[in-house]
Design a protein around this nucleic acid. Structure first.
Lengths: 152, 152
DNA sequence: AATAAACCTCAACTAGACTTGAGGGCGAAG
DNA sequence: CTTCGCCCTCAAGTCTAGTTGAGGTTTATT
C-alpha cells in the first residue's frame, strides 16, 4: 500500500476503480474495449480514470440489473456529450427510458404466467387453442430486452 | 414434393417436424444430441420421429418461453417414463414446477421496478442509500432462471 | 539495486442455444 | 441417367459478458 498515493487525488488507477466499484479489473478492461468507459494513459502505459468513471460504472451495473444489454448501455452513455459525468438529470432520462422496457418485460412475463395458469388447468397445449403455443402477443420483440430470456 | 409421401403416416421426417413445429432442422438435431427428443433411423440413416415428438417440441418451446434452460427441460422430459408422449397430467406436473420459478422472476423484476421508480425521483445513485446500488434483496439466485437477465 | 505488487497486451476459454458450411449420400422425377 | 431436393456428419462460427493465463513491464518500497 501507499502505492496509490502517487496518483493525483482525482485520478484513479484501474485497481482502485475495481475495488471501489466492485467490478473486476478484467471487466473494466472489457468495458473500455467496448467504449463504455474511457481512460488516458501514464508514461508507463497505465490507465488513469477520472472520478466520473465511478458513476459511469454504477450506471452500468444498475442498467445490467434492469436487464439492459451492454451494447445498449454503451449507446446510451454515448448520448451524454463528450465523456461527461452523468448527472442526476442524465440518469433520470436513461432510467425512464429503461423503465419502459422493464415494464414491458414484466407485463410479458405476467401474461405468460396467466396463460400458464389456464393451461395448468387444462393441460392442453393444443396447437390451435392454447394461448401458450399461440403467442399473438408479440409486442416488445424489438428492444433491449435480453433475447435469451424472452426469445418469442 | 411427394417426397414425404413415402414415409408411413405416423412417422415424421426431420423436415416435416421442422415445418410443423416451427423449429429449424438444425435445432432438432441439436435437441436430439442433447437427449431432449429421440428418433430411429431408416436403412438410409435418415431420422424418423414418432408423432409424440411434436408435443415434446411444443413442451420445449413453451418451457423456453418460461425461461427454463434446455438442460433443465431435458431433465424434466427424462422423468417421463421411457420416451412416452407427455400427457396432460405430465404437463401439469412440469408446468406447476416451472410456474414457481416464473413467479419468483416476476417478483424480482417488480421489486426492481419499484426501486427504480424511487430512484427516478431522486436521481441519486448514492453509494450508500440507493436501493438500486445496494441489492440486499438477493433471494432467488439459484434456480433455473436465466443468468443473463438476472445476474444479481 | 532488488524485490514485490500492480499493471500491460493478447489469445484462449466459459456457457447456452443454436446456425452455418463443407463434403457427401439417398431417392424420386424427367 | 442426371438432376433436384432432402438428408447425413462433423467442425467451426455466432452472440453475450466476461474470466483466465502467459509472458512481460512499471512503480513503489526497502
Amino acid at each position: 500500500m501507499g502505492h496509490d498515493a502517487r496518483i493525483p487525488r482525482r485520478e484513479l488507477g484501474v485497481g482502485e476503480v475495481a475495488r471501489r466499484s466492485g467490478v473486476a479489473v478484467s471487466a473494466l478492461h472489457f468495458y473500455e474495449a467496448k467504449g463504455l468507459i474511457t481512460s488516458h494513459r501514464t508514461g508507463g502505459n497505465q490507465r488513469r480514470y477520472g472520478r466520473d468513471v465511478l458513476r459511469r460504472v454504477a450506471v452500468i451495473k444498475v442498467a445490467q440489473r434492469l436487464g439492459v444489454p451492454l451494447a445498449t448501455i454503451g449507446d446510451a452513455l454515448k448520448t451524454l456529450p463528450e465523456a461527461r459525468t452523468p448527472t442526476a438529470a442524465d440518469w433520470r432520462k436513461l432510467s425512464e427510458h429503461w423503465r419502459a422496457d422493464l415494464d414491458a418485460r414484466i407485463q410479458k412475463l405476467t401474461r405468460l404466467r396467466d396463460s400458464l395458469d389456464e393451461c395448468i388447468g387444462c393441460g392442453c397445449l393444443s396447437v390451435d387453442t392454447c394461448p401458450l403455443r399461440n403467442p399473438h402477443d408479440e409486442l416488445g420483440e424489438a428492444g433491449p430486452g435480453p433475447r435469451l430470456l424472452d426469445p418469442g
